[in-house]
Write a protein that binds this DNA or RNA. Structure first.
Lengths: 206, 206
DNA sequence: CAGTTACGCTACGACTCGTAGCGAAAGCAG
DNA sequence: CTGCTTTCGCTACGAGTCGTAGCGTAACTG
């Protein structure tokens, strides 16, 4: 992230780090109250107690700003060792669902993804700031499960399976939460995890 | 769909059906060229050869218009009998991916989903126009597979499993295509279908 | 024919956009 | 402390979009 600062000069007045935090927080606040389409940069600037021009000096536009504001939300994802692969996956699923339950994540994330379909640079930015950063969880869970003997050693060195798992978990939770709009509770997480695990264990011996 | 026509009166000049088609086509065209955020209703009206006021008389706003424009794209989804459950699923996955490869579907669909997070009426409209209409494919595939003996009879009368399958298939394909932005080709469809089927078959006998 | 509704067109105030110019503030090197 | 540099808040601006209103005309019905 923060590829928005072109070159941190050694001289001159430094950029206020507090302003950065205030702007991103104000962006999330505005996303909650107004949603994506009615969010204006002028409004965000006012909420943050910052001049509109300051905002434009740091971000190219609405898209880039919201990506940074939303990316921070996903950094709280953790995968504590719960003893079994099933429990680990369930834990992450529920955490992910909890983040998606927050309105600033819901409208912000989907909106920037929509915009990224016409903007390759934006998509790359989303990938760096959000997607790839969380893919670590998949590797972490698999490594742990292999050490426990729950999963065979990875037969695929290109990690295509890891990408598939990530798409399934993230995609399914997002769809359940945002499109189907039904509760992503523990019962659902168990059913989903169970189905996924059966698929994973079986895929080792075709 | 077309809940936009409040009451079709018997008298007076009828609404031009050709205008409807022209407007929806123009909306998709504008989505391709401009994307969601830069799409203006004035531009759509010009492309369709229609006055801007006519457009506002039929749709409440950008959201509703794009939902209708995008919903038509998904009506072409079919599930011909390919002989096995695996082949049926693969076929639908590839068809779905083909639709999502079209830029008007990509940017339009995600954008209205993003807006729907702050607009319950819009979410309900998306559900009616797009989601529930395509859920038929899941039931169709399961019924066929049960007749072939590939799957046990549905132990769950509330069709929670069907909902889960739908979320997994639609969510995963969307995530793969729009977020991961990697090819949703036959090889990937095979791997995904294989994993899903192993989970489905196993979930009958835990 | 009269009655009713949809249509195209024009015009409007309100709002947002992104940028430019200004003087003041906050650092750093000498 | 004194210049030097960069950021900051503020104001103002033309351009573009929004959604609506008003008007005369077109299309269809009984």
């Amino acid at each position: 992230m923060q590829s928005r600062t072109p070159v941190p000069r050694a001289t001159g007045r430094p950029r206020s780090a507090a302003a950065d935090a205030a702007i991103l927080a104000a962006t999330r606040e505005a996303l909650v109250e107004l949603g994506w389409s009615k969010l204006t940069l002028g409004d965000v600037a006012t909420r943050a107690g910052v001049a509109k021009t300051t905002l434009y000096r740091r971000w190219a536009g609405k898209n880039e700003l919201v990506v940074d504001a939303v990316a921070e939300l996903f950094d709280e994802l953790r995968m504590p060792d719960r003893g079994s692969l099933a429990a680990d996956i369930e834990g992450v699923v529920l955490q992910f669902a909890a983040i998606l339950a927050r309105p600033e994540a819901r409208s912000g994330l989907m909106a920037v993804i929509a915009e990224s379909t016409r903007d390759d640079a934006l998509r790359e930015r989303i990938r760096e700031s959000i997607v790839d950063r969380q893919k670590r969880l998949v590797h972490q869970g698999r490594t742990r499960a292999q050490q426990r003997g729950e999963l065979p050693a990875d037969p695929d060195p290109t990690s295509r399976t890891a990408d598939l798992i990530f798409d399934i978990v993230a995609g399914t939770v997002v769809h359940r939460t945002l499109v189907s709009a039904e509760p992503t509770d523990e019962e659902w997480a168990r059913a989903f995890t169970s189905l996924l695990l059966l698929g994973l264990r079986g895929s080792a011996a075709p």
